[in-house]
Design a protein around this nucleic acid. Structure first.
Lengths: 299, 299
DNA sequence: ACCTGCTGGTAAGATTTACTAACCAATAAT
DNA sequence: ATTATTGGTTAGTAAATCTTACCAGCAGGT
């Protein structure tokens, strides 16, 4: 193993680079700006490479610094995530699975009891993320994630790609202004949950009304809200495949049109590469695949 | 960015874990064993997790430690490689390309002058690795690598998969004991360069003499040695595709049989993921692809 | 048993590193 | 100008890291 620069210096530099400010880095690390100044200066001397341009009262990353900082950020993140994962293991809390609230409520909740009964030796802890669409290896070991382009930092195990179609309350179809043809969607709200509008646009194009893409919205925080809003007849939502829950089967939500298209993204079970061979993750993956295939909303 | 454990402690632990010995770690880091003992103890206290089992005069990694150490090793390696790459950039040495000696001598050397003339704005430095078959991001930015299973840590850009066949000196065929049928290979040395014997085994199977697999050998350090040995009629080597050089065309080496099979592995241009979009690497890749396609030993 | 050689643990003190406080300089916005 | 903000510098301090010196446990050999 070769020599490394002063690790404290690297940490100070990484924070300073992220903030583009010594003061910001100092606050983050709970030290004075003077400490950051010293550490960065020593690091630059050690590397014999200027990492910042000092211009007057501010600092800007040099070319070398701009290249260097992301490497360090990545390395420190790995250490941070690895530390948390290791502590979880030591605390023997079981496998922590990150799921969206909507999936937790509509899909996992009714199955979790059975999973725990069938797998008493594999304690599963849910971590429901309200805001993060991406996998966060800090608090969770493994995540149930929907994404259009998988993050190369994590290991993705494909689960499925659903066929999507609009869903709404039964009243919405027969009421006024009604919903008899795709063009009638112009009179209703098209609830959008994910960041990008690709799913809605794909469906609208398939339905022959691509112009309605401009009417997509409002954007809601979670699928849960879209679901509630659709139930009360306030608009139209897009199905999200197996993880929808029982409302479609129970007749609370109906499909106004038969038209359906493939989801642009897909669902994955995601984990850090280091633990991808953990038998518990294999086991969970196999269970999920079986549950999804048995879900009435699938295929 | 969350809190991190003492970085010095982490470094000490990582070294100790690698050596499974505090003394070994102490020597590596040029400190006393007492320092390692302190640092590891503090780290364990900070994490509230025992990382080693102390049994008598020796230490063994605990379950948590066994999980933790590879994460740290990976992170420190990334820092180390990133540091070297950044320093190279700062020194403005140009792009460093790692190639095997054989490729450097037989293939790159005659093309390098032209490459430099055609690309004066892209200074290319060769790093010839005698021993390492894998890409080493320490000294090199990018590598020209043959592998059967790509290392997931690096970004692999496929170049080609060659068709392989035996090559030998012309005298070997007509002399005694001769080489008229594949079975005659039993009387000659089958030079093997890569670690695994998959290529030879695949060819022998295709030639209908799979039993000769037991006679593969001797194993040589580099393709260069195999080449020299084959030239002087001491045995039979396997072709390695485009990077062979001129000896086949010049009649110094000949193909005793028409039988050929696909290489089990493939050639890749390899780099760290962080710099995969560097235009210089794109440029080099495109140039390599063009040169390979124009190589008489290809296709 | 007995050394001998090697391992790691511990205590106390030295050394180095990292940090702070206080003050200075440069800039941008009043 | 005046003020607020940011980074640099100096000198002294605090804290971490490291070493020395000594202890104990274990293995292999006379």
């Amino acid at each position: 193993m070769p020599r490394l620069p002063s690790l404290k210096g690297l940490r100070a530099f990484e924070a300073a680079a992220r903030h583009e400010s010594f003061r910001g880095a100092a606050e983050e690390l709970n030290v004075t700006h003077s400490a950051i100044s010293h550490l960065v200066k020593n690091l630059e001397a050690e590397l014999a490479v200027p990492l910042f341009h000092r211009i007057g009262r501010s600092v800007r990353l040099s070319e070398a610094g701009r290249l260097y900082a992301p490497v360090l950020r990545d390395a420190f993140e790995r250490i941070s995530h690895g530390t948390e994962a290791m502590r979880r293991l030591a605390a023997n809390q079981g496998l922590v699975l990150q799921v969206y609230v909507s999936v937790a409520v509509h899909w996992m909740a009714p199955r979790l009891g059975r999973f725990r009964r069938d797998n008493p030796d594999l304690p599963l802890v849910l971590h429901t993320a309200f805001r993060d669409w991406g996998f966060d290896p800090g608090p969770a070991d493994v995540g149930l994630i929907y994404t259009t382009n998988p993050d190369p930092r994590w290991h993705h195990m494909f689960l499925y790609r659903a066929r999507i179609y609009p869903l709404c309350a039964p009243d919405l179809i027969s009421g006024e202004p009604g919903l008899r043809a795709p063009a009638d969607l112009a009179w209703h709200r098209l609830f959008q949950v994910y960041e990008d509008t690709a799913d809605w646009r794909a469906w609208l194009a398939a339905a022959g009304v691509p112009d309605l893409a401009s009417r997509i919205g409002p954007k809601l925080d979670t699928q849960l809200l879209a679901h509630e809003a659709a139930l009360t007849g306030e608009g139209v939502m897009l199905s999200m495949g197996p993880f929808m829950g029982r409302d479609l089967g129970g007749g609370h939500l109906v499909r106004p049109f038969d038209i359906e298209v493939e989801q642009t993204g897909a669902w994955y079970l995601v984990c850090r590469g280091e633990i991808r061979h953990d038998p518990r993750i294999r086991h969970l993956h196999d269970w999920l695949v079986r549950e999804i295939e048995g879900d009435p909303a699938f295929g």
